[in-house]
Design a protein around this nucleic acid. Structure first.
Ligand code: NAD
Ligand code: NAD
Lengths: 234, 234
DNA sequence: ACGCCCTTGTGAAAGCACGCACAAAGTGGG
DNA sequence: CCCACTTTGTGCGTGCTTTCACAAGGGCGT
């Protein structure tokens, strides 16, 4: 059979596109707040910081939601992108690690406004458990499995020290969480069905340093690469 | 002439490679701490969560620093990658916004240990200026230009609310900062010579939500393996 | 009702990135 | 000294991304 006739738009949005949809969504919400009703691909692309052809191709993966000669209806597009991203439903998030970062995350208002609900903030330190952070009481890490199941947590956030991250991750996975956002600077090992994304500050800084150095160098500066012990090239 | 050109690395390392070098570096440092002297591409790749062929190709962009039949000298490779990333020098970083996130960043130990020095933490709120955070006194935003110039800040970190981000960014750029790390959920507008990287929590969550929805949606329309299923994504 | 003009949606081309598979290169044993 | 074995470095095919360029589609003024 040819299942291709089943859907107006094929299931199978390129990963690169998925990563940009949230950016478009935010830009659109900004436009909506300013009372703008329609927007051309050119203007939206500019607001999102991308090339307009790319934006159109990205949106074309969702369907034909534009009107030629006019542009896109802002509200409608917000809805369509939200739906595609799964934001028409709420997602429960559990944060493990109530340290500097975990608390900052819990205090961050940008969660709830976008359909993500912090169901729990857990920590292993008895001195921290019971604290109130952003109207949430810090729970004990041992309740992780219960919380995940009771609150139907589908996204786990890891904000513990690097050495503890894999262990926390394993517990999340064991408890049935299949989406993990990792702030610890380690490579997590998970089964193929689990989706891990990482946010790594050091890496970002190092990438910036690389480019900064290159800008500063200007010309080819190959300082004596040689060093103790190892083989000398040439 | 024509010596097998000592030019180990051509100018022009692929961006994708640059983004992975910090991951390799961290994995190598972990090995070094455990007293491991040499490592094969297979083992290092596994520690870094990538394919070994990819790792070898990435490293080949820096030069031929491996020994066939043996592997790579851990210390030597640490040094080479560090040098390539510009980590053999120290970088001064200025953080603007001493709120939840700014404080968490300032308190984060992982900075100094990797060659990044927090030269200043600035805020506009008079009630916050003067606070001590992580042994650092919060300065007033109006001193930004002075600090940048006096401390030779080359990397600016933006941790202010979205509405204030572009303004802070403009001041950084005006002051001569050409590398910016942005935590605010906005698209920053900068001259071409300025390098901006963003860390956007909401976007990461939304991408996770997209895949989570897809997994939950009826069937496996797309085998999770093909996408960012398992190992961490770059 | 007609045609002009604007903007979308999309082939096609070019550019990157990835990973396989293997020759080359070096090690260590006999 | 030679050979068997290990692991690197890379040529090459494949698939994904980006960008260009334009035909098709739709609104709007006359
Ligand atoms: N603070 C930052 O700005 C920042 C930036 C980048 C990355 N990170 C990373 O984020 C993670 C957290 O950073 P932080 O500054 O919040 O550290 P932190 O030390 O302030 O907090 C860590 C918290 O995790 C808890 N914890 C430790 N082991 C645990 C376990 N097994 N189960 C549950 N809780 C446990 C500790 O009790 C502590 O409260 C670290 O991996 C760090 O490298 C932090
Ligand atoms: N807290 C988080 O976990 C988190 C997560 C993701 C993104 N963010 C983003 O990071 C940014 C900061 O978040 P936060 O939670 O720390 O906010 P916050 O409100 O706690 O802190 C913001 C700080 O910036 C200062 N500020 C405001 N305008 C300024 C200006 N023009 N110049 C200098 N300082 C100024 C404020 O005085 C305040 O101290 C926001 O854009 C937020 O969206 C935060």
């Amino acid at each position: 059979m040819t299942p291709r006739s089943t859907r107006p738009r094929e299931r199978g949005i390129p990963e690169a596109t998925v990563a940009r949809l949230p950016v478009y969504l935010r830009a659109l919400q900004g436009l909506a707040e300013r009372g703008i009703l329609t927007v051309s691909s050119e203007d939206l692309a500019s607001a999102a910081g991308v090339n307009s052809a790319k934006l159109r191709k990205d949106l074309s993966h969702l369907g034909s939601y534009g009107t030629r000669g006019v542009g896109y209806d802002v509200d409608y597009l917000v809805y369509q992108i939200s739906r595609e991203l799964g934001l028409t439903q709420d997602w429960s998030v559990a944060i493990v690690g109530a340290g500097n970062l975990g608390r900052a995350l819990a205090n961050y208002g940008g969660f709830g406004t976008r359909g993500f609900r912090i169901a729990a903030l857990l920590d292993a330190d008895e001195g921290v458990v019971g604290d109130e952070v952003a109207g949430l009481r810090v729970g004990h890490i041992d309740t992780l499995e219960d919380v995940v199941s009771a609150e139907r947590v589908s996204i786990g956030v890891i904000a513990v020290p690097a050495v503890a991250a894999q262990g926390v991750c394993d517990r999340f996975v064991e408890a049935g969480v299949t989406s993990v956002l990792n702030f610890a600077p380690v490579v997590l090992n998970v089964p193929p069905a689990v989706d891990v994304r990482k946010v790594d500050l050091s890496i970002e800084l190092q990438i910036l340093a690389f480019h900064a150095q290159r800008k500063a160098d200007g010309r080819a500066t190959a300082p004596p690469a040689g060093r103790i012990g190892a083989k000398e090239k040439a």
